[in-house]
Every structure is written in C-alpha cells, then in structure tokens.
C-alpha cells in the first residue's frame, strides 16, 4: 500500500502534504506510486473535496470514512472542528510481476491481489481513524502556536515526523 496524505485549508489550499508507504506486513514505509500515477495524486485528492463538502454538514462526526475512489485508489477524510480537511489517498501496490509484461491470461490473478484490499473493512477503517486522530492531536498542537494563522502552510519538521510516526504505527 502507498499513501498520500494532504491537509487542506478552509480556502481549499494545501497546507501539508506527505507521502509514505505501509509499514504493516513487512512493508518498509516507502511509497511506491508509479511515476505516471504520482503526479495524479494531488488531482485525485482535490477532486474529492466536492464530495467532502456535500458530506460536511450531513454528519457531525469528524471521521467520514471512505468518501471517494478513483480507479483503485480510495480516499478517506477527516474534518477538524475548524473545518480543516485531512485527506488520505491509499493505493494498493501493484505486484512487481504485473507491470505489463505478463500475458493477459494471468490478469485475473493480479486482479485478485489487487482487490484483496478492502477499504470498508472494519480493521482498515479503524486503522485509518487512529492515524487521523494521532495527526489531529499534533494538528491541535500546531494551531496552538500563537504565531500560526489559519490556512498557513505547516513546515515544521517535527510535525512531519509526527505524521510519519503515526503512519508507521497504524498503516
């Protein structure tokens, strides 16, 4: 699994972006987006903002679970009290053998490996929720900074380390 995490401000401007891979099941925590997919990530994430705004007032919970999908990528969302949006894009990694050199006969098998990721499984939802809550904790500490203005970018390396640690811990 590869993850692309973005914090979006109230004016739909990105405040923080972080890319990482899974650390579960022997993962090394490195994102493995394909080169042509990597630059698509910001577009996919930002296009889900419309859906998020529709859901925003429907439920009072902060964690909105999976709100959107694009091809095999899924987007989970979390809204803070100040309506800052946390978005997490998760993409299952392609098995190395499936990078186009295999004959079509084996495509059903790779598809099976592909679809083994189920974003609505309770365990996955819970893991993503825990990740969001850990980031939210660090986020509240960030905005407690008296020099922090709303919608300002977050450049703190300590915050980035916190997000990375939360990713290693839960995803």
């Amino acid at each position: 699994m590869s993850f692309y995490f973005a914090i979006i401000g109230t004016k739909d401007n990105p405040l923080f972006v972080h890319e990482f891979g899974t650390s579960k099941q022997g993962g090394d925590g490195v994102a493995r987006f394909r080169d042509e997919a990597r630059h698509m990530n910001p577009f996919i994430v930002h296009s889900s903002l419309d859906i998020l705004e529709e859901l925003q007032w429907g439920s009072g919970s902060m964690y909105l679970k999976t709100i959107d999908r694009f091809q095999n990528s899924h987007i989970s969302a979390f809204l803070t009290g100040g309506n800052i949006k946390f978005l997490l894009l998760s993409t299952p990694d392609l098995p190395p053998i499936a990078t186009g050199l295999r004959p079509p006969a084996s495509s059903s098998r790779t598809n099976a490996a592909f679809s083994s990721f189920n974003p609505t499984a309770p365990a996955t939802e819970e893991a993503i929720k825990n990740f969001f809550l850990e980031v939210y904790d660090a986020w509240v500490k960030t905005i407690m900074n008296p020099f922090y203005r709303v919608d300002a970018e977050v450049n703190s390396p300590v915050f980035r380390a916190r997000v990375g640690a939360a990713g290693r811990k839960f995803l």
């Binding site: 007032w57 439920s59 009072g60 919970s61 902060m62 964690y63 809204l79 009290g81 809550l133 939210y136």
Partner: peptide
C-alpha cells in the same frame, strides 16, 4: 475517548 464530533447545527 478520542474526539469524534464537531458541531454542525446551530443549537449544538
């Protein structure tokens, strides 16, 4: 318990 809700209605 972690935080989970935010106010979405006027009264809340």
């Amino acid at each position: 318990q972690p935080p989970t809700t935010r106010p979405t209605r006027l009264l809340s």
